[in-house]
Design a protein around this nucleic acid. Sequence first.
RNA 1: GGCGGUAUAGCCAAGUAGCUAAGGCGGCGGUCUGCAAAAUCGCUAUUCGCCGGUGCAAAUCCGGCUGCCGCCUCCA
Length: 488
Amino acid sequence: MGLRLHNTFSNKIEDFKPLGEVVRIYSCGLTVQSAPHIGHMRAYMVRDVLVRWLVHSGYKVKTLENFTDIDDKIIEKQKEQKRDWRIIADENIAKYLDACDKLNIKRADFYPRATQHIEEIIELVNKLIEKGFAYEKGGDVYFKVRQFPDYGKLSKKNIDDLVSGARCVPTEHKEDPLDFALWKAAKPGEPYWISPWGKGRPGWHIECSAMSMHHLGETFDIHTGGEDLIFPHHENEIAQSECATGKKFARYWLHNGWVTLGGEKMAKSTGHYFLIEDVLKDYRPNVIRLYLLKTQYRHQIEFSRERLNEAKAAYLRIQTYIHGFENLPETTEPLKLKEFTEAMDDDLNTPKALGIIFDLIKQGYEKPSLDIATSIKYYLKIMGFIEEVPEQPLADIVEILHEVKVKLKEKKSTLLDTATLGFWNLLEDIKTSEEFFPNLIYVLLQIRNQLRKDKDYELADFIRKRLAQKGIQIFDKGDVSTFRVEAK
RNA sequence: GGCGGUAUAGCCAAGUAGCUAAGGCGGCGGUCUGCAAAAUCGCUAUUCGCCGGUGCAAAUCCGGCUGCCGCCUCCA
């Protein structure tokens, strides 16, 4: 069957056929005026799943994601914060990449910045002027929208409706209010680059065309981005690129839905958002990933603690099952592969794919099987979940052991007799060594189980309570106890 | 006003003509258990926003209506 993707351009789900041997993908990156929020991360999470699935399907992939490191907003921030725009950009790029790494979002192959491609941008603008698609006025350069007959095709907009909507402010230099800036003259005090039209900086849309052409060629396979970019940004990208080259720009346009807050889109401008760095403080990456993949990428997702907690509970179900199978081998023939493949091939239907994982878990409990566990691991890996090793706080266990020792002394317990004395003495030397953990916690659990056998429930419950306070939950199953380190 | 999306259980969310409408969360009941927790098992939409139509057959197609969201200005 093969991968099918929803193409905004045709508004249909189409068979995906790459142009060449390598699938070339361009993702509209951030304008790095501020730190990324959870909504931003969704876009790159979607790209991540797409890339992982393509690679899994046997494709070679080349990805490019830009950073808009100069624009009006960043210049504003510079004035506000009285800090150089480069520092602001660097800081936010670092935060973004850090969040990607934590969320296990595969990095793009290239992260070009607008300011690193001024030369290509100028060249492209020149080409557009030469071909009669652009004009210079007062140091600004504008694109003549009406020169491009296909304008509006991606966003399904009628040029004349846009004019009557008349929100596009006619600036003094524009010949037509629809025209958009390719190059902006610098005002006094603003950062600038030298161009044939004087000191200035690139307009927002042109950088994506220049950079994608430079790294991916004039025509490439997939262009991704948030829904909001369809108009005018992607429409403008198409116009200026196709006018310059006379060739098709991007072949498949993938747009992801919003992350909303109280039913409304997250927006930097209103302070109506949650920064990813803050969300990561409360929820671990796998939970955030599950939360985002629980909904098909084109639909909007509501952001709330309730939703995140729900994802956490669901994730725990997966984790609890997998934890029953330590050191799982890799498999090459997972169960339900056909169903899983069909789901992912169907415009990345991750909710359905996750449903298959939960079906497997249910089956696995009915009839335990290593195949089921290895299959689940296989699918989780494809979807970009991280194999987790919970952190185990050694110092906390040692502290509790000391408390227990004191109580045992008071009780003159046989658990302190000569046979175990060596251990208790050894305990005095343990400070931070990791070697004894997680074995140390099993020692504690064994002591507790002996106490339970001796019907000393008071001390047994004390241990349980103290561990719980340290974020370690214990579960008794007959005379065997297991534990779970409470995770985000 | 133009364009696009969406409406499925208490909540989230798959499903776009045909077996009993996936799955998750929550809730209820059982098993296990010193207690607790965890785990597990069972139950939890005779029905898919509303009205009408086409089909042997519709959540799924067509027409109309309503609600919600977004874009039309910077925005993932």
